[in-house]
Structure formats: C-alpha cells, structure tokens
Simulated assay, not measured.
Amino acid sequence: MSIQVEHAPSTSKLETLGVSKWATWKKEVSVFPWVFPEQEIAYILEGECVITPEGGTPVTFGKGDLVTFPAGLKASWEVKQSLHKHYKLDGNTLTQIWRRLKLKVCG
C-alpha cells in the first residue's frame, strides 16, 4: 500500500483524467490524522505537504504533483504550505458513504 506521486504530469494526461472538473479542497497549515476509505487521486494546485503512512516512510508532494492515495491508507498529514487541490474519490456517493460508515462501526 504505497502513495504514488507523479511530478509534473502532462497537460494531456490531466485533460484525459478530467482533473479540471474534479472537486477542490483547501487546508491551512496544520497536522492531522487521516484515513482514506477509498482510493483518492489528487492534483495539487498550491501548497506543500508531507504525509506519513502508519509505520511507513514520509512522502513529500506539492504544487503540480498528481498523487494517488490507496484505499485503506492510515496516515498523518503535515500541511507545510496551505494546500489547494483537485481530487477524485473512487466509487460513487453511495459507496463512499457506505465505506465511511463501515470505518466508524468497524474502525
């Protein structure tokens, strides 16, 4: 279960993925734990982060990176510079809600 970082993906790849139509999210400089119930793909518009998987090696990414977080990943985020990203979650709204409920009950 590893985080994949692609530095400076091509414009054509971003267009093929439809990144500009994905939702966006912002986060101020902070440190917090996070669990990824489903795979997430993010394109970083601004900022710099270090994410450390439980029992793993820290991964650094920032502006211009395309990052894939695997489903089930538990990690600690350190937002070093305010983050602004496009993101896409695997599955549809119903499966996303179900995974989150399952995490709360079983987690």
Score class of each variant (00 low, 15 high):
1 M>E: 01
2 S>A: 15
3 I>T: 05
4 Q>I: 12
4 Q>R: 13
7 H>V: 08
8 A>H: 10
11 T>Q: 14
13 K>H: 12
14 L>I: 03
14 L>H: 05
15 E>Q: 15
17 L>Y: 04
19 V>I: 08
19 V>L: 06
20 S>H: 14
20 S>M: 12
21 K>A: 14
22 W>M: 01
23 A>D: 13
24 T>V: 09
26 K>E: 14
27 K>H: 13
27 K>N: 13
28 E>Q: 11
28 E>R: 04
28 E>Y: 01
32 F>G: 06
33 P>F: 08
35 V>P: 00
36 F>R: 07
36 F>K: 07
36 F>W: 14
37 P>E: 12
37 P>V: 07
39 Q>S: 09
45 L>N: 11
46 E>Q: 14
48 E>I: 08
49 C>H: 03
50 V>A: 04
51 I>R: 00
51 I>V: 15
52 T>I: 05
53 P>I: 02
53 P>E: 02
54 E>N: 08
54 E>A: 06
56 G>I: 07
56 G>W: 05
58 P>V: 02
59 V>G: 00
59 V>W: 00
60 T>K: 14
61 F>H: 04
62 G>E: 02
62 G>H: 03
63 K>S: 01
64 G>T: 06
65 D>E: 00
65 D>I: 03
66 L>D: 03
67 V>A: 04
68 T>G: 00
69 F>S: 02
69 F>V: 00
69 F>I: 01
70 P>R: 01
71 A>N: 10
72 G>E: 11
72 G>S: 10
73 L>D: 02
77 W>C: 05
78 E>W: 06
78 E>Q: 14
79 V>T: 10
79 V>G: 03
80 K>T: 07
82 S>E: 14
84 H>M: 01
87 Y>V: 04
88 K>P: 01
88 K>S: 14
89 L>M: 15
92 N>G: 09
93 T>G: 10
93 T>W: 12
93 T>H: 11
94 L>V: 13
94 L>I: 11
94 L>H: 10
95 T>K: 10
95 T>C: 07
95 T>P: 02
96 Q>D: 07
97 I>W: 13
97 I>Y: 13
98 W>S: 12
98 W>P: 04
99 R>D: 11
99 R>E: 14
104 K>M: 13
104 K>G: 08
105 V>S: 07
105 V>Y: 12
105 V>R: 11
106 C>R: 12
107 G>S: 13
